[in-house]
Amino acid sequence: MGRKKIGILVSVLIVGGALGYLALGNFGENLVYFFTPTEVKAFSSDYYQKKVRVGGMVVKDSVHALTEKTGLTFELTDGESTIPVAFEGIPPDLFKEGQGAVVEGYWTHGHQFQSHMIMAKHSEDYMPMELKRAGVELPKKDFMKSLQQ
């Protein structure tokens, strides 16, 4: 009988704990999945050199591959502010100018974001290349708005 009671308690705790985690831990205002470039620029010095994620759109014509080592530099924008990013490594396949990216790394005293990890944030539209070339635009969420949520 005792073991059964413990079992019931554990089951209820799993459900309650999972829901509680959603309500308090993850989605409280104190924790966001990524910062925007505007927020990064406003960082107090406590945040410098601290591992964070930043999300934004890769600025057109800002990507430059490094030749001395494997890596690249580019700019990330949320429409309001733009920050420079230095990345070491091979960027993911879908990393592209004019598309979303979430970079992991830290904001330095030299006001540059240093990263070893890029995640591509793709949009929700899907179509064949022929349509894209023909200039078709499907309805989708304004990317900059999705950064401000």
Partner: peptide
């Protein structure tokens, strides 16, 4: 993995979805 460059990340969609799995497992255990 091939699109985002990550198998898993704790964003709101993925977290709330794994919570759905936990709730169902809790239910079946109960």
């Amino acid at each position: 993995k091939p699109t985002w460059n990550a198998w898993w990340t704790w964003d709101a969609r993925l977290t709330s979805f794994i919570v759905l799995l936990l709730i169902t497992i809790g239910y079946l255990m109960l």
